[in-house]
Simulated scan of single mutants.
Amino acid sequence: MSARPLFISVLLAALFFAAVANAQQSIVVPGAPAQTITVPQDPAVPALQQRADKTDAAVAALTKQVEAANAAIAALQPKTAEPTVAAADVLFGVDPAKALKAQTPVLGYEACGVNLISTSAPEAILCNGTARISLVVDPADATRKVLRLAQQPGDPVIGGQPRTELNFSRSGAPPLETPLVRSFQIYLPVWNATTATYLLAQVHWDGSGFLNPAMALKVMSGKWRLDIRHGTTSQVNQVVNADLGPIATGRWINFVQRFKLSPAGQGYLETWIDGVKAHSYTGPFGYAKGTPFIKQGLYPLDSPVGQAILLRGPWLVRDTGLTVPQLSAWVATK
């Protein structure tokens, strides 16, 4: 190929790219006599670029106006309240914003070998100079209080064991054949290694004699375990003794139990831990004689080594169909 056709090809390409790039180009043609060609800038390109820049700015400004309008419309919309437990559906519970003696309905405290009712309770229930039942700062929220229950070896006994428990027998009986929810959050700061079994939540039966609880949530060998029973005053049938998995320390654990007490056989109990169903039972639940009541706290079945727990709740409410996360969220606000 001669130098002149090559020169022409290079020149045409340079003219094209100069127009597109909106810049002047100096072209030196290799192999040709030394010469420089200056390609003039296309005067239409800067005007088109300015128009494009103005269009982009207008679109950005309009987008901001639309976003602001949407935000204003959203602010005017009525807020939909998160479903929660209605006051009329609350049977009883523990309100940590109130002093021990201000709990209503009347609550029973069992600690240091004595039974107290809430109306006569001191600021804290002590044993040997240290608190067994008291209100303390929530480890996850310094603006609120929670209930602390503790038990130590050598504490005076009640009914054969040095228990530290809340007794709701005076607060009201869970109605039979009625869908209910027991919801609480529990915090184990530590759990001392022990072979002793501790009951932490129970459904007892007043007037049934010295029978084991119809429901017992307990810690045994570092695991949550669940017992369910039914029967008469002369016969106990334990239908569940389930392993619910390992315990966890240093954080709040959410428990939700949906249940219906029915000695006749239409009962059920669903136990949820941290939003996950850990166990489900359907069948007879409770005893044919007497009145059920709730207990919560520390009850060692064997030789105690000393433990402490924190509680949000418990609360007993009618089951109106709220989801487990909604129930847990409600308890977290109490």
Rank of each mutant, 00 (worst) to 15 (best):
W315C: 09
I158S: 02
F92M: 06
F285H: 02
V324Y: 02
S118A: 09
I37K: 04
P189L: 07
R182H: 03
S2P: 03
L100V: 05
T104D: 13
V236K: 00
L149G: 15
G154E: 02
D53F: 09
Q151P: 07
A278T: 01
I27M: 00
L217G: 04
A142M: 00
Y198E: 05
Q235M: 08
E165A: 04
L188A: 08
A332D: 14
G306A: 13
A216Q: 11
W224Q: 02
Q65F: 11
N70Q: 13
Y281D: 07
A21N: 15
S134Q: 13
A97T: 14
F168G: 00
W315T: 11
L200C: 01
G113Y: 02
L76R: 10
K98I: 14
L126K: 08
Q41K: 12
G31C: 06
R144K: 12
V190K: 05
Q185M: 02
A111I: 10
L261P: 01
Y281P: 06
T164A: 02
G265M: 08
W315G: 01
M1Y: 06
G159E: 15
L261C: 09
S26F: 15
L180C: 04
Y287D: 15
V239F: 01
H230T: 03
A193C: 14
S134I: 12
D42T: 13
L200D: 10
L15R: 15
A264F: 14
T104E: 12
P5V: 13
P33K: 14
E82N: 11
M220P: 03
S118E: 05
N70V: 12
Q202R: 00
V137Q: 01
E177S: 03
G209C: 15
A242C: 00
L200G: 08
A19P: 15
C112L: 12
L176R: 04
P33G: 13
M1F: 12
L261N: 02
K289S: 14
L48C: 03
M220I: 08
K101H: 14
L76A: 11
M215N: 00
K64G: 03
D243M: 04
V59Q: 10
W252Y: 06
A61T: 10
V239D: 04
V39W: 08
I309T: 10
A58G: 04
Q266L: 14
V90S: 00
T232A: 04
D319L: 04
I73L: 15
D141R: 02
Q202P: 02
S26A: 12
P5T: 07
A32K: 07
P314H: 09
G286R: 11
S328K: 09
A75V: 06
P162K: 07
H204K: 00
P96H: 11
D206V: 02
Y281L: 07
A23R: 15
A71V: 09
L91F: 14
L91S: 03
T333K: 11
A72I: 10
I37D: 07
T323S: 13
K64H: 01
V85N: 10
P43T: 10
G265L: 13
A124K: 09
A140W: 00
N128V: 12
